[in-house]
Design a protein around this nucleic acid. Structure first.
Lengths: 124, 124
DNA sequence: AGAAACCTGCCAACGTCATTGTCAAGAGTC
DNA sequence: GACTCTTGACAATGACGTTGGCAGGTTTCT
């Protein structure tokens, strides 16, 4: 019957599942960095009733965007905040355009390195 | 009939008029800074046939945006470049929204008085 | 012609930021 | 009970933004 607690059968990207150490290893950053992002208002992971951070897939995706913007495009956290707020205000997926743009630049730059496992354009 | 060389009777904001020292004093920065902005691809002042930079009103406006974004909002030059490219891609005046946003933040920060005529659509 | 301002390129200083890292004391989880 | 989480502080490293100077050369104005 399997009426047990539902696990991966509900692929809700909003569901908070990853504790900070797991989230940090997923996105390959120090847990400290994730806390800094949160202090900067760039990610808002859920909390357990006992105050433990839990990151959802959406949170992870968001962090990957921050990494892409800061590491690949050189934008600082203030710029990331502006872009996020802008996207929210415009209700548009401007980040995807940015990613395409970055991809264009990167491709034009060296063209090598296929296998782009970066934040995929979910496209809704 | 005054068919002489036309001066201020053509208020074309695109016309290159200010040499770098004048432009720098207008926007209150070091000439060095303007050259850095140009190296970063953020402004492209015209040049005389003998290679002297000439800034138009539009260029000045653009530099003032850079100053606003960097000094008031803390965005770095990479972020400014992204925002400029984004605005160009979208064909929208997103910078003005940013300015309103910054004005809102500043007003809300120091002008703690109520009387808010707008129900800022946060809450999500 | 001569002074002043422009050009490019380099270097340097100062403050700030981004990231990682650690240590502490306390609380939650397995 | 051992491990991981919480916040808060402190520090080191590397990079960036801005101003500033200096070199040697060209353009502009008087």
């Amino acid at each position: 019957m399997r009426v047990s607690i539902r696990r991966a059968d509900t692929p809700d990207p909003e569901r908070p599942v990853y504790v900070i150490s797991v989230a940090a290893s997923i996105v390959s950053v120090h847990p400290r960095t994730l806390r800094i992002y949160e202090d900067a208002g760039l990610v808002c992971p859920a909390r357990t009733p006992t105050n433990i951070r839990l990151y959802s897939e959406t949170d992870i995706r968001r962090v990957l965007w921050i990494r892409h913007l800061t590491q690949n495009l050189g934008v600082n956290l203030a710029g990331v905040r502006i872009l996020f707020e802008l996207e929210e205000r415009l209700g548009t997926r401007i980040l995807e355009r940015l990613y395409d743009e970055g991809a264009d630049a990167a491709r034009a730059a060296q063209d090598a390195t296929a296998a782009t496992s970066e934040p995929s354009a979910s496209t809704a």
